[in-house]
Simulated scan of single mutants.
Amino acid sequence: MTATFAEIPLTGLPFPISEYDRRHRKVFAAMEQANLDALVVTSHGRLQYLSGYTGRGAHFAPFPLILVPGETPTIVVREYDIGGVRPATCIENIVSYTEQFQFAPVSADVIRRYGLQCKRIGLELGCWNLAPADVTALQAQLPDATFVDASRLVAKVAAVKTEQEIEAMRFAMNITDVAVLAFQQSLREGIMEAEVVAHLNCEVEKAGGGLRAPSITLLFGERTKLSHGSPARYPIRNNEPAFMELGGIKDGYCSGLVRSAVLGRHMEAELLHDLSVEVLEAVISAIRPGVTAGQVDAVAREVLKRHGRPKLLNHRVGYQTGINWTERGDISLEPGCTDVLAPNMTLHMPIILCGETGYLIGTSEHVLVTKRGAEILSRTPHTLYRG
């Protein structure tokens, strides 16, 4: 990095260069196993994991990170965004384009410089931020190359965390716990969803952290029937449920939680929550190295089957977490998934049950897979809060 960029306040890498070098080596090894000569990384979460850059400017067109085993990585970005990319990345080779239509020819030119125009090239076809038109344009530029789907290659490497990453996730969970406590302490008749969010954001800021803003779900009463609903100026009344899902964030690493509450009494919400706790605790007990994600999912469904209510759970049991918790291609705890759990993976299990009248109520935990089982990262009990 040049001295000019290094002097920009609040910029830089969250981890030492050695950590990014380690990640690159792991990905190179995975590429060799997959018989890939090059990998074009375009999804925002993977870009941040491997380069440090968040990908904020990449809505214009992909900012591909091109990896070739044994070679220095290259990142291709829009010229306008170089000033934001350079102080935030460990990648020294930066190649630019000006207009969106130049993305494919400039990226193809980089691949040709590596002498790989006739080789096997991996693309993240199942991830966000790579449009079909982008793929078609690259194919037109490199007609002799063999393009293969490598959507899950980086995800599998990133699934196992280092101590530095785990430390970031623990900090993020501390912030999440602050937000949960603020949510619970705010509940009183007449307070609005938006008011509670404003209060918990204030408490989180006092604690020196932040929340992953686009992912905040906080709903009262009948609005708890909305999946992933955004908070509004809507008040809670006595004998109504409340539901929240949010996550503190540190250096891109987010630790999410689901918590529910009832102001007064609400029999359906209380029943759904009791079942969700039973499912969650069975799932946590099933998590250990060597089991598959599908086996963990099956444990959850067996609990509900025993209660004669298997249809209450209409989504996956959980998912791999780390940078960008909504990334496609991550390990998913869903029926039939054969991914094997390993120590130092982090997982979020949102056990949200859908009642017969549409209420979505539940709880969750964020865990670290250990050699013996699972360590719960949150210090907030997953019991129902009663206001």
Score class of each variant (00 low, 15 high):
F183D: 00
T2H: 13
C337K: 08
E356V: 13
L181E: 14
V303S: 10
L272N: 04
L116I: 04
M173Q: 14
F101D: 13
G322D: 02
V41F: 03
H59Y: 14
E281P: 04
E375L: 12
V367I: 13
S260W: 05
K311M: 13
F63H: 15
E334Y: 11
H59C: 04
M345Y: 05
L181R: 13
I361R: 06
V279P: 11
S230A: 14
Y385P: 01
Y80H: 15
L123F: 08
L384D: 07
L181V: 10
M349N: 04
V154E: 05
A104R: 06
E193N: 03
G358Q: 05
G358D: 04
L200N: 07
T74D: 00
R120W: 11
P132H: 02
I287T: 13
S107C: 10
H307S: 10
G362K: 07
F15K: 03
V76A: 08
R22K: 06
L142N: 10
V369T: 09
R386H: 10
S151A: 07
N324P: 07
L218C: 07
P69R: 01
K250D: 15
G12N: 11
S332D: 15
D297A: 10
A172T: 05
C254D: 09
T363Q: 00
R23V: 01
G290C: 03
Y53P: 09
L275H: 09
S276F: 08
F101P: 07
K305M: 12
P132N: 02
R386L: 15
I351V: 13
I284K: 03
I8S: 04
T224C: 06
A286I: 07
G264D: 14
A286G: 00
S151Y: 02
S107P: 04
D144V: 10
E163I: 12
E195G: 06
G52D: 04
G55P: 09
I94T: 08
G387I: 01
E193R: 01
M31P: 12
A168C: 12
P143N: 12
I284M: 10
S96I: 11
P381K: 00
I66P: 02
K305E: 14
V262L: 08
R306W: 09
Y80N: 13
R112V: 02
N239K: 06
R113H: 09
E167C: 11
P64L: 04
V27P: 03
G256D: 12
V27F: 05
I352A: 12
P14G: 06
E7P: 00
T74P: 00
I82G: 06
R372Q: 14
A342N: 08
A34L: 09
R86V: 07
T98H: 15
H348V: 05
A158K: 02
H315Y: 11
G190M: 05
A269E: 13
V110F: 00
T321N: 05
L313D: 01
V258K: 03
L47K: 02
R328D: 11
P381H: 07
E203S: 11
A300F: 09
R152M: 15
K250R: 07
H307N: 11
C127A: 14
E167W: 00
C254Q: 08
E334P: 11
I236W: 02
N201V: 09
A269P: 07
T292M: 06
C202F: 12
G122Y: 10
G12E: 11
R188A: 11
S51Q: 00
G264K: 13
C127G: 05
I331M: 08
L280G: 15
T363C: 07
L218G: 00
P87W: 05
K206F: 02
R113T: 14
V76M: 08
E163P: 01
H315L: 02
Q185A: 14
